[in-house]
């Protein structure tokens, strides 16, 4: 079975591209692996669209497979042989599957939603890719439910306050590790909880049944409403499709606090499908806004302190890619692979 690795960032400039490049280097050296590369955003540009600071460029080699939007090829120096044109439309044209025939830089803009990524991943495998990297976009994470191994890139770009960053990262990983409850046959299924009326209905159903499966998301407002039921939630089960559905509803810290209060009342919160966070990468870099000149400059927090504070907050491996390269990270990814 192929590795399908997603690389998501907690914010812009947390080192997604650096992590992607480091893992790509390792895949290139691994004779048993054929790379499949795609992205849920737009990556590989010379300069950051917002800060105007330089960015690392992605380079691909002959044989590698890619799934990218047509127009991203126009600004890439790599030569790509067209294997298949899909009908998946993006702002930069239809997604094509291609094989690299000449090395060079590649701008990867790919399928940007879950539904489309779900179609593209088997296609990459069909053409032989057995190590697929799904490059992330900004702070987006929703389509990453489709991958079977997730690397989270975080760092000073999220916040340069290391205490805050450590707490946030800890909570993020904890939510992603909520337990899997595979047996949901006897539970009531409901749609996304997006307003008070839906939250009221959810509470009523939950209090009259053993558990509820939400086939979608629950807004933070919905969670707040549920809290009002207090001790009555004890022993009940609230199941979501996956942990990412919990993360997209608001700031991590806020969501975590709401979920913790619910759990403290005895509500069991779990997911149907695991999103496996394999490792974290940390990046001391952040773009610092200069009011004097109205632009950004590169800045760094203390690398050692950053690494230590994150390592102490989570139960998964942490890497500083710039400092140590991608070798050990790659070992962890391959080792944890499920066959």
């Amino acid at each position: 079975m192929a590795v399908i690795l997603g690389i998501a960032g907690t914010a812009k400039n947390t080192g997604k591209t650096t992590t992607t490049k480091a893992i790509m280097d390792q895949v290139q050296q691994d004779k048993n692996r054929l790379l499949g590369l795609t992205s849920i955003g737009y990556d590989g540009e010379d300069m950051d669209n917002i800060t105007g600071l330089p960015k690392p460029k992605i380079e691909v080699w002959p044989g590698a497979l890619v799934a990218v939007a047509e127009r991203s090829l126009e600004v890439s120096s790599a030569q790509i042989q067209l294997l298949e044109k899909t009908d998946i439309a993006t702002p930069l044209g239809k997604i094509i599957l291609g094989k690299v025939i000449k090395s060079g830089t590649l701008l990867i803009a790919g399928p940007n939603k879950s539904k489309e990524l779900r179609r593209i991943l088997p296609l990459l495998q069909h053409y032989g890719a057995n190590f697929i990297i799904v490059d992330g976009a900004l702070n987006r994470i929703a389509p990453m439910v489709e991958v079977n191994s997730l690397i989270l890139a975080t760092g000073a770009a999220k916040t340069s306050n290391l205490t805050d960053l450590a707490w946030e990262t800890k909570h993020l990983v904890e939510i992603l590790q909520y337990p899997v409850f595979p047996k949901t046959e006897n539970m009531v299924n409901v749609d996304s909880i997006l307003d008070i009326q839906a939250a009221q209905r959810l509470t009523a159903i939950l209090l009259n049944n053993q558990g509820v499966v939400i086939n979608g998301v629950i807004s933070s407002q919905g969670l707040e409403y549920l809290i009002q039921a207090g001790e009555e939630l004890k022993g009940k089960m609230l199941i979501l499709p996956d942990a990412i559905k919990l993360l997209v509803c608001g700031e991590v810290r806020h969501i975590y606090n709401l979920l913790t209060r619910l759990k403290n009342f005895g509500l069991e919160i779990g997911v149907k499908k695991e999103v496996r966070v394999t490792a974290l990468t940390v990046n001391p870099y952040y773009p610092q806004f200069r009011f004097s000149s109205n632009d950004y400059q590169a800045a760094y927090v203390d690398q050692g302190l950053l690494y230590e504070s994150i390592t102490n907050s989570v139960n998964i491996p942490v890497f500083d890619i710039v400092e140590e390269g991608g070798h050990k990270l790659y070992e962890v990814i391959v080792e944890k692979e499920i066959y």
Binding site: K12, N112, K113, K115, R140, A142, S192, G216, V248
Partner: peptide, 19 residues
């Protein structure tokens, strides 16, 4: 604003709207 929009897209995706 980019982060705000990305968050909207994520929420829409997770809610199944984008299907």
């Amino acid at each position: 604003v980019a982060e705000l929009l990305a968050r909207f897209v994520d929420l829409a995706d997770a809610a199944g709207l984008r299907d």
